[in-house]
Structure formats: C-alpha cells, structure tokens
C-alpha cells in the first residue's frame, strides 16, 4: 500500500444495512491517493451509497480490509474512530440528511460546536465565510424543510465541509440539478479538489458517486464502475472513452 493513500480497500464486501449477509457489492480492490478526484459510477441501486458509507467508516465491511489514512478501521473505537471521521466530509444522497429540527446555521455549525465546544454565535462567526462561499448565508435562519433541493444540498455540503475535511465523499450530488446549478457544483468541486480558501488552500481528495457519468468526464482524474455487483477500476478519462463495456455505456447514457 502507498503511504499517501487516503482510502485503501482490499477484497472488500460492502455490507447491506438491512439484510445482513447479503452484500450488494463484493471484491472491491481500490486505492485512492491523496489529492485525487475519483468518479464512481453505476446505475441506481448498484451499491454506490453503500460503498461511500463504507469508505466513510460508517458501515463495517462484510469481508476484506479497509484502511483510511493508512489506518485499519476494524480495531478502531471511540476517540480514534471519531478522529478519522472528523477528517472525512460526507454528502449523503437525496436531501443530504440534514437535521430537520435544526436551522441551516445550526446544521452547519453543529460539528464545530460539538467538537470545539463553541457557542452558536462563536461558531457562526467561523463558518460565515463558508456560507458566503456557498451562497447560503441568506437562508441561515431557515429550516431545511422550507428549502428547495438545490439549497438543501448546498447546506449539506456546507455541513460536510465545516470541519475542513481532507477527504470529501459526495453521493450523487448532481441528481435533479438544472444546468446552472450543475455548473456551480462543478466549479465548487474543482475548487475543493484544488484547494478552496475555506480549506486553507489545501487540496482535498474527492470521491463522487453518480449514475450519470458523461457530464463528469472532465471533472474526475480517475474513474470506477459498479456494474451488476462487480467492481471495476477504469482508469483515467481516456480509458473510459476507450472502454466498450455495456455497463459503462449505460452510465454514459450512450444508445445501446
């Protein structure tokens, strides 16, 4: 294993949270190096969400070995596990799993307030530049239920960036966005991957899960495909375009 690997999976079987013993995806061998931007594609229900939750250390592996930042996750408990999780930002699919009983500001500041023991006003002062960068400062007093999906996703992104993570896992962030929103997200992800001012200029490692690959061909450095329960690392953009696999053609949206 390369010491600069952020995620290292060897023979990993992703566990199914509802049906123990029946993992939707097996045999995942995957190394994500620091600073890379990966796009993992697959049709809906292929197991991308499960893979990203596993990579975030939220779901124990059913088989195989998972290392995050060079540390095996299996024996970690308590503060050690928390330390790893604080280095990872996760944007969940759908509406980002925001806390419905908290306002936007409370949602975004929660990780800071919890880990740094800060008051709401002190944490709000710290995250003000982040809210401004994501264009959500005007909705900071709203509850998530009162926002449209594109705004909710931005709030969820702000929350996942609040602790200035080194690894950002984005589960289907582009689904249902119009072309303007899509451009905004693409620019932001490029900025995060190359060193956003909020991240103090440090490039973050980014993994994007998607069911529509073509618009992201210019964004990712490396690509992988989940096709009918099988994991395949495709390589760079040239390899993707040269690949003739039918599963890949489906996520590229090519006519069959």
């Amino acid at each position: 294993m390369n010491t600069s690997d952020v995620i290292e999976m060897v023979g990993v079987e992703v566990a199914d949270s509802r049906r123990p013993g029946r993992g939707p995806l097996a045999g995942v061998d995957w190394s994500v190096a620091r600073g890379e931007c990966w796009v993992v594609s697959g049709l809906q229900g292929s197991g991308i969400s499960g893979l990203l939750e596993t990579a975030a250390g939220l779901r124990p592996v059913a088989a195989g070995e998972l290392k995050l930042f060079g540390e095996s996750l299996a024996p970690l408990r308590g503060d050690e596990l928390t330390g790893i999780r604080k280095r990872i930002g996760v944007l969940f699919s759908g509406t980002g799993r925001l806390f419905s009983s908290l306002t936007v500001m409370e949602n975004v500041t929660l990780p800071l307030r919890y880990h740094e023991d800060l008051s709401l006003s002190a944490a709000a002062e710290i995250v003000a530049p982040l809210l401004e960068a994501l264009g959500i400062e005007s909705v900071s007093a709203s509850f998530p239920a009162h926002l449209g999906r594109s705004w909710t996703l931005r709030v969820a992104l702000a929350r996942s960036l609040a602790l200035r993570p080194e690894l950002l896992l984005l589960d289907d962030p582009f689904s249902g966005l119009d072309s303007g929103q899509f451009r905004w997200w693409r620019t932001l992800i490029e900025s995060v991957a190359s060193g956003h001012p909020w991240l103090l200029g440090r490039p973050a490692t980014v993994v994007i899960g998607t069911d529509t690959l073509r618009p992201l061909l210019g964004l990712g450095h490396r690509f992988a495909l989940i096709d009918r329960g099988a994991w395949r690392v495709l390589g760079d953009r040239q390899n993707v375009l040269a690949c003739e696999e039918s599963g890949l053609r489906e996520v590229l949206g090519d006519p069959s």
Binding site: L58, V90, F92, R97, F99, S100, P111, Y114, S160, L163
Partner: peptide, 25 residues
C-alpha cells in the same frame, strides 16, 4: 416519533459521519 423519524431518515448516520456520538447527542 421524532427519534424514529430521524433514524429512518438517516440522521443518526449523518451524526456519526460528523464524528458526533448519537448516544451522547
């Protein structure tokens, strides 16, 4: 109802993802 709905909507996993102990919080 509040907690069950939050659990069903995946908010507990969201807490864990932020390094927040759901039991503590």
């Amino acid at each position: 109802v509040d907690l069950g709905t939050a659990r069903a909507m995946g908010e507990v996993e969201a807490l864990e993802a932020l390094g927040i102990d759901p039991i503590h919080y």
